[in-house]
């Protein structure tokens, strides 16, 4: 296992482009900022420091104040932390459910596969935002509800990817060779199938993580996601929107935070997937 990871990392490092390096760096920095938010933020999250809203940057207020006179810079750390934690939980949950069911469906096949695949088909025929809005109507917007709902929606997409990968791998002769040896389900899954699906799954994880960030931010922006006084990046944009009218850039900082994470992850995934991109014939260019 360790050997494998080291090997694929060494391989990947060889083709690392400057853009990809930069993206990797940004992602690490953001994760670090999210983890260490309470230590890095100069002020407490809800602390009102001044009576002036949308003040320009100055003494102790690195990015100025927000609409209530709180330190925007500190709030960004906490907002980032909430966004990252919530989105990561969503992506992990979606992967746990989607991958297990997807691989199970691929390996078991038959009725189990039919049943789950049809169910997922029906769920995918359902625009994700609709499902989210319906559940929020019924249960109200709370973080656990949002996490479970979005993870559920996402898991259908993960299921499809995992199942497709699994179906491809299951028909490979090396899996058949293990089957005919008499290997049980557990070995097939852990030793034959999963190691070969790891790389595309990692790319898919990046995509699902950014999707979760965008989705939760959009809901918060609409006022249907995280509810104040808690604030993720979407809430920070929503509550400071008026700043635009006063000519400040206050809502743009959290927006840029979101863009920095999602663009970095997407560029990295894109770089990774394109390493094996086919070239098209010269005579068509």
């Amino acid at each position: 296992m360790v050997e494998r990871v080291v090997m694929s990392l060494r391989e990947a490092r060889r083709d690392l482009t400057p853009t990809a390096t930069l993206c990797l760096l940004i992602i690490c920095l953001i994760l670090l900022a999210a983890i260490l938010a309470p230590f890095l933020a100069p002020h407490r999250e809800g602390e009102i420091l001044t009576t002036g809203s949308f003040m320009s940057p100055g003494e102790g207020l690195f990015l100025g104040s927000d609409y209530l006179g709180r330190d925007l810079f500190s709030r960004l750390f906490y907002g980032l932390r909430l966004t990252v934690v919530v989105s990561l939980t969503i992506a992990l949950l979606a992967f746990l459910v989607g991958c297990s069911l997807g691989f199970l469906a691929a390996v078991l096949g038959g009725r189990f596969d039919m049943l789950i695949s049809r169910l997922v088909d029906a769920l995918i025929a359902f625009p994700a935002i609709m499902l989210a809005l319906i559940v929020i109507t019924a249960l109200g917007p709370s973080i656990p509800v949002l996490v479970v709902t979005i993870a559920f929606i996402d898991s259908t997409r993960v299921f499809r990817v995992a199942r497709a990968l699994g179906v491809d791998i299951v028909v490979q002769d090396y899996v058949e060779a293990a089957t005919v040896r008499g290997e049980r389900f557990g070995w097939l899954m852990w030793h034959e199938i999963l190691p070969n699906a790891l790389v595309p799954l990692a790319a898919e994880f990046g995509i699902r993580f950014t999707y979760a960030i965008l989705f939760i931010s959009a809901l918060s922006f609409l006022g249907l996601g995280v509810q104040p006084p808690q604030a993720d990046l979407g809430v920070l944009i929503r509550e400071n929107m008026q700043g635009l009218l006063y000519g400040t850039f206050t809502p743009l900082y959290p927006a840029l935070c979101i863009a920095a994470i999602t663009i970095s992850i997407n560029l990295l995934v894109d770089w990774y997937l394109r390493r094996n991109d086919a070239a098209s014939p010269e005579d068509l260019q």
Binding site: S217, I237, M241, A259, T262, N266, D277
Partner: peptide
Amino acid sequence: TRPDSAIDRLISTSTLALISVPDFLIAV
């Protein structure tokens, strides 16, 4: 039709940036 050419890189990178940015941010 021109993979890896300058125009492809331009289109690919800008579309990638666009799908990474939330749509409300573009609106803002």
